[in-house]
Write a protein that binds this DNA or RNA. Structure first.
Lengths: 334, 334
DNA sequence: TTGTAAGCGTTATCAA
DNA sequence: TTGATAACGCTTACAA
């Protein structure tokens, strides 16, 4: 592999000049530039980014941490960020945290050790305090899908409480009064906030929250299935089911069909996130929009603005969810 | 950030000794090791991986190229590889090619410039020749989901021809004779091979391939919708639809429902890939299993074996697809 | 406009 | 078992 030294020899100039040509920095005469570029071409020269990072303490790459590499939520997040970052001529380095504090920290360490210019994180397990300490270090950190009051300026988040509230309120407005709820794992802030919104809507209609109508799932299909099984077991009747995300709803609906429930006539269902699949479930899933793609792109824009001084429009920090009406939710009839 | 130098001063030893402790290389007395470790702890020392890579010409990271960061296919691929690689104490660096030759090459350049120890690629647009040249360079390269005869030892692939054949044969065995086909983009080898298998099955039953029953889609829902719209336009009747992947099938089924088709009674559908969603479509999608997760893990194992001398079991290079029967395909009745 | 030379934080080869 | 010291390939003052 050719190095900058080989290029300088072939072009008959110094290392510094080659470097200047590469980086468009300093003043280089047209003639020398041409010579250097010719030499680069001839040698098929590619800069060694590792050496560049070490010398310049910049890497032109952005570290991203997601909980998982699969699934529509993180898929949209990763590709939303990557599109923005790539358009700016930078690269992403992606790693995972698996929603475990220790792995999240290890992932962040990895990104830091690679000298990323900035981090964009979706963390669910590490504490606010950890994040606050992290943000005091020299690398700029941005959080998507999480709100830490002390770091509000670095957060791009969804109002999950409002989302949870809207979901349940929509069911209530359609005449439902017996509403079951399958949440996500409650150690995750998103799951907690959505549940709070649910309770708030119930309270507004003077309905008491019942433990027999609550199940803590896992944000996956499995949770939906297990939740439905649990409810079927207690025998407490309900006309509507509120799921903390769409995957849970998919699992619940599938299980409901196994129980020979006629959907949506015998059971209305509402999800959360509006992942692509929601539109292909049967009946098509009514849900709450979670603009994760837009949020991720906003985080990337914020980063580009602050780290690389790009001029980007105004920044929206908190996104508001809204109801997407489809076919899985109908008016309750006696 | 503390450096190896700070550690050496605090521990009262040389740089070299600190390096030896970090890498468990050479012989270090227990006493010095303890001293060094204590110093590291005290300073919160983290090695600078960029400097390590530059000096050692190794990076302990594996470059991965996928076409997209979203979607079940690539999601499974990424997380399958990552799990194996992480278990071996190495890291992945992921980038995208967007199924365009130029972007695929740029992605590969990026991974090479970061001095990855090996590359695992899912490339669709670059030529075989390019790959053959690439494999002659010093970095080991592995290909998943693509078969290049000259590089057979580095390929982990699916027999797509067989898959395409099985799909159509299954329809034929269920009495269908008028079979429409929505393919993926034909510049992709997968799409071409699946189509070849389809034609082979037709030929075996002495059925002539008709252009009016063929549509070139995009491997996405959109392709399925457009294909169904095109078929509806020509008016050529058909009792079964063979889709080159599940996403296409999802789009086609949704569009079929818009046309008031009663599925599966008026139209049988078969997909390809068996993505998670296939199980949640209505009717549940009959499809061809594409064990992308297993294939990716196999690629990772092969890499670990060859690059890091890990002892892993035997390697399977070509995977065979099989039919997953569900509800979207029924026997054709007159 | 161009060149010289001192880092950047490690690894690895010699000696000791 | 340890320590000097020369790479690794590039950036970036500072000089010329």
């Amino acid at each position: 592999m050719a190095t900058i030294y080989d290029v300088s020899v072939l072009a008959g100039v110094s290392l510094a000049t080659v470097s200047r040509v590469m980086n468009n920095s300093g003043n280089v005469s047209d003639k020398t530039r041409k010579k250097v570029e010719a030499a680069m071409d001839e040698l098929g020269y590619r800069p060694n980014t590792v050496a560049q990072s070490l010398a310049s303490n910049r890497s032109n790459s952005i570290g991203i941490l997601v909980s998982e590499l699969y699934g529509p939520y993180f898929g949209q997040m990763m590709s939303g960020i990557e599109a923005e970052v790539r358009a700016a001529g930078k690269h992403v380095i992606i790693t995972t945290g698996h929603s475990e504090a220790q792995k999240e920290q290890a992932g962040i360490e990895f990104l830091l050790s690679r000298k990323c210019d900035a981090l964009i994180l979706h963390v669910e397990a590490v504490s606010d305090d950890y994040l606050i300490t992290l943000c005091k270090q020299s690398v700029p950190v941005y959080l998507v899908g999480r709100f830490v009051p002390e770091l509000a300026e670095r957060c791009i988040s969804l109002d999950n409480r409002l989302g949870g509230y809207l979901a349940t309120k929509t069911l209530l407005e359609h005449g439902h009064r017996d509403i079951a709820y399958i949440s996500g794992p409650l150690f995750k802030p998103d799951a907690r906030h959505r549940l709070e919104g649910h309770k708030q809507a119930l309270a507004q209609y003077n309905i008491i929250f019942e433990n027999t109508l609550f199940f803590e799932g896992d944000f996956n299909e499995t949770g939906g299935e297990q939740g439905m099984a649990a409810f079927a077991n207690t025998g407490r009747p309900f006309s509507a089911l509120c799921c903390a995300n769409d995957e849970t709803a998919a699992g619940a609906m599938e299980y409901g069909r196994k129980l020979n429930l006629d959907l949506p006539n015998q059971l209305s269902v509402i999800g959360f996130d509006n992942i692509i699949v929601a539109n292909y479930l049967y009946p098509r899933l009514t849900t709450i929009e979670n603009p994760i793609m837009a949020m991720s792109q906003m985080a990337a824009k914020l980063m580009l603005k602050q780290v690389y001084q790009q001029k980007n429009g105004s920044i929206q920090h908190v996104f508001e969810p809204k109801v997407i009406m489809r076919d899985s939710l109908i008016r309750h009839t006696q």
